[in-house]
Design a protein around this nucleic acid. Structure first.
Lengths: 136, 136
DNA sequence: GTAGATGCAAAGTATTTGCGACAAG
DNA sequence: CTTGTCGCAAATACTTTGCATCTAC
């Protein structure tokens, strides 16, 4: 895991500082979508000297390097997530704030088709569902 | 058009000030998705005294009243759009910044289905496609 | 007349940046 | 060594808010 990130950094000529390694490691082990403040809190537990400016700089760098993705969910501050191999979208529980991930091939294909019809080649997309839990 | 907005305001007990009427009118006549700064520029041409704070307060109010919707497209400042009767999603040209609107029933239904499968009732969603124009 | 709206400037948030000290390659 | 990074604090960008004044109803 960490090796992969380190390799990716080397390939891009990105210096591997302790701070970056730490942020990479924490994000690799995080299975949620922390915002910068929360991420800073997590890394601070290990490196008490790390500044939030470095966290901001690093997530931005990692986003450009393709290690993290940024999410701007409705009304919230930016959250980050490790870029895992498989693509997925999100469903946000508007009551609890919980975030579920899902994959749906059919919807992916439809999006391509729509873009095509409009004369565009899809380079990216964002699909967010907002819902409330059903009681059975 | 304007009548409708005024009616909606009365129904909600929202006072109809000149500033609000003006903002409503400008948004009704706008067929794009201006951000607050741009909207303030447009209304300022007619009412040179209107403050940007009022524009911020009004778009927020109109959003809650169901007159406008807010969009947070990737990396841009918040944009607003009049809530027209029909629902649509957006395709953003990543090169020119142009925004196209589209409707696709199939995708709407799929989203419902996905939410359902996850045990949720859909209350809202956001679908944005980012693409580059194809040359023929 | 009164509750609520406005304009202004000041205060918040979230994020970025300049700079001298420092560390990676 | 040299180039890029770090921590810090100051700066920026966008948005909200306190307050005295004014306006819709």
């Amino acid at each position: 895991m960490t090796t992969t990130i380190e390799e990716r950094c080397r390939k891009k000529g990105v210096k591997l500082t302790d701070q970056r390694k730490l942020i990479a490691r924490i994000m690799s082990n995080s299975h949620d979508h922390p915002n910068v403040e929360e991420l800073h809190k997590r890394v601070s537990k290990i490196d008490t000297k790390i500044s939030i400016a470095t966290v901001y700089r690093t997530v931005k760098l990692f986003e450009e390097t393709g290690i993290l993705t940024k999410h701007d969910f409705r009304g919230e501050k930016a959250r980050y997530e490790k870029l895992s191999g498989y693509h997925h979208d999100h469903l946000i529980d508007v009551q609890s704030g919980e975030i579920l991930e899902f994959v749906n091939e059919e919807i992916e294909k439809l999006q391509e088709k729509i873009a095509e019809k409009l004369g565009y080649q899809l380079v990216d997309h964002k699909l967010e569902l907002y819902g409330i839990k059903k009681k059975k």
